[in-house]
Nucleic acid binder design. Structure first.
Lengths: 341, 341
DNA sequence: CTGAAAGCGCTTACAG
DNA sequence: CTGAAAGCGCTTACAG
């Protein structure tokens, strides 16, 4: 039995709970109780702790999970962790989970329903305690009517009603604010560019249509695949038209990058030739000249709220389905300065 | 035994390998073999597959890991997943792992040695197959002389020699390129701003000093905590001095944001009053006016290479320690345009 | 509060 | 190729 040691870890290969028990002069059951929250006398607890240190024992989580029938694991399934929105949310989810002594397993679906199905099966094999999930529209529809064998909290995306809890932005309200702001600044021909694959894009489009109707303006919108390239191509064509919009609202930051590139490629001044507003307060939207007006999402709060919903449901399974709708914060910048005809 | 079903998942609570065996008319051992790569006749394999479908069986991974003594898990420990460099690397690591049928567990240390120690212990409890790790300097030093009970591949950061494999950028070369480029464009008073907590910052500083010496120029550098705020404060003071640098090279993108803000706060034109170059080709460095010259790191390649080193070492433990040093790509933009005195 | 014993759901020698 | 049996390392009734 070879021994390694360092500041961090005293390792003896193959130390099990029996070895600790022997070293502490107690039974394995007592070691288990001392490590958990079982009732153990202070005296024995101290002996066990000393033995743990002496042996360098690390509990085997696979064994613990199997025996206790509790994986202590939260599944987190998102489109792409490289999307800064999901990056930030996942960080909040992980912090919250680690504080509760749980771990997180993360999967990237790439907005592909087949991979969503694959990862959902994987989550089953992991026997996860609960799932936090940003699904595509098609999977969202399926799951709205079906229960899984663990609680699910949707984030970022949700339908009306449904069987599962959800935490989402108030997309209609947020888009309404953006449109109202542009109108107030003197813009009338306001176009909308929306992603075509998530419910979020759809809700933001609805908010756009609603707001335009409220102001008696004629809406004009386009749907594109959720990539900067698709948005750039669409915007370049659109902005070449005779009757191009005075302003554009865009449903996410990836599309916003595409639109910005298109505007620059066309030599359009912002906001002189084209005002611009979008979602997600990423660092580049502030650093660019002029800064881009955006709706900032409460990303930490979304992650935390999702975990809270999950914990509450685990504690009280009978709770009614809850939907937490959070408001965005409108960050005004130069890209929507008052119109100068 | 309640039954749920949907397109994705046919769930019967508590279906185990015995239930599948019964349904297929074979022994549990045969089910196990049919699901793995054990020798099973085509006939029985088909029966098992049908029974799996009929019962909605999902193997319990905790049991499998415990019994097979193989967690099939890669640990990934980084400073902060919100750093786009780590985001991209982690995505590459996960893709590579999932392709190999392994999963990844991710931890964020926040550059805190105590949390690094905590997570390293956690990795032990998970009985991970191997670790990919971007450590702080102090932990790097500790681990360089110590073996853990799983193979470790350092990414982004490494010391000289050491016991573990590593994948890093050629930081000296990259910084040398940046300095040479600035010199060629007519800059002489070139300052350096470096992070003070990682070996990467130190190596880039060394590359800077080396290059400045090569050109016979007087170096002037400062070290700061790895945050945009710290960099901004330091840069504001620095740029207020009478003898401020004509150009600044900056060791990471967080610091670069701070410097950019400081330059703007001081009303300095880029590159007229201050040329700027840094690391990591993030979208904002291109979108800003003028674009910022940066070293682009081969992030996907770093993640892939780290996984490959890990797999090779698992297959052949006796391999000598290897260090993969990858070259960055210098992306030239307006922030380092030819000097106009 | 403590210990002996059973068992979580698998995989894998072992024997045939 | 197949099955019966043992056992991975824990936790948890059960009994005291």
């Amino acid at each position: 039995m070879e021994t390694f040691s360092n500041i961090f870890i005293e390792v003896r290969m193959g130390v099990g709970i029996k070895d600790v028990a022997k070293a502490a002069g107690v039974s394995p059951a007592t070691v288990s109780r001392a490590l958990g929250k079982g009732p153990v006398s202070e005296e024995l607890r101290a002996q066990v702790e000393a033995a743990v240190r002496a042996t360098g024992y690390r509990p085997n989580l696979a064994a613990r999970r199997l025996r206790s029938q509790d994986s202590g694991t939260i599944g987190l399934v998102v489109a792409d962790i490289r999307n800064p929105f999901f990056t930030a949310v996942s960080r909040a989810v992980e912090d919250s989970a680690y504080r509760a002594g749980m771990r997180v397993i993360l999967c990237n679906t790439g907005e592909d329903p087949e991979r969503e199905a694959l990862y959902l099966r994987h989550m089953q094999s992991e026997r996860i305690t609960g799932l936090i999930f940003a699904p595509t529209r098609s999977t969202l529809d399926q799951l709205s009517k079906k229960a899984l064998d663990f609680p699910v909290v949707f984030i970022d995306r949700c339908g009306p009603g449904g069987l599962h809890d959800a935490v989402v932005l108030d997309n209609r309200e947020a888009m309404g604010e953006l449109v109202a702001h542009l109108v107030e600044r003197g813009y009338r021909r306001i176009g909308g560019l929306f992603g075509n694959s998530s419910s979020t894009g759809a809700q933001r489009r609805d908010g756009y249509l609603e707001a335009m109707a409220r102001f008696g303006l004629k809406p004009e919108f386009r749907l594109v695949a959720p990539s900067a390239e698709a948005a750039q191509a669409e915007a370049q064509a659109w902005l070449a038209a005779d009757e191009r919009p005075e302003a554009l609202v865009v449903s996410n930051s990836l599309l916003l990058i595409g639109v910005l590139r298109a505007a620059r490629a066309r030599g359009l001044a912002i906001p002189g030739d084209l005002a611009l507003a979008g979602f997600d307060n990423e660092s580049w939207t502030e650093l660019v000249e002029p800064g881009i007006t955006v709706i900032e999402q409460p990303v930490e709060e979304i992650g935390r709220a999702a975990m809270n919903l999950l914990f509450e449901r685990l504690k009280t399974p009978g709770l009614p389905v809850r939907k937490v709708v959070l408001s965005g914060r409108c960050v005004l910048r130069g890209s929507t300065a008052t119109r100068t005809p």
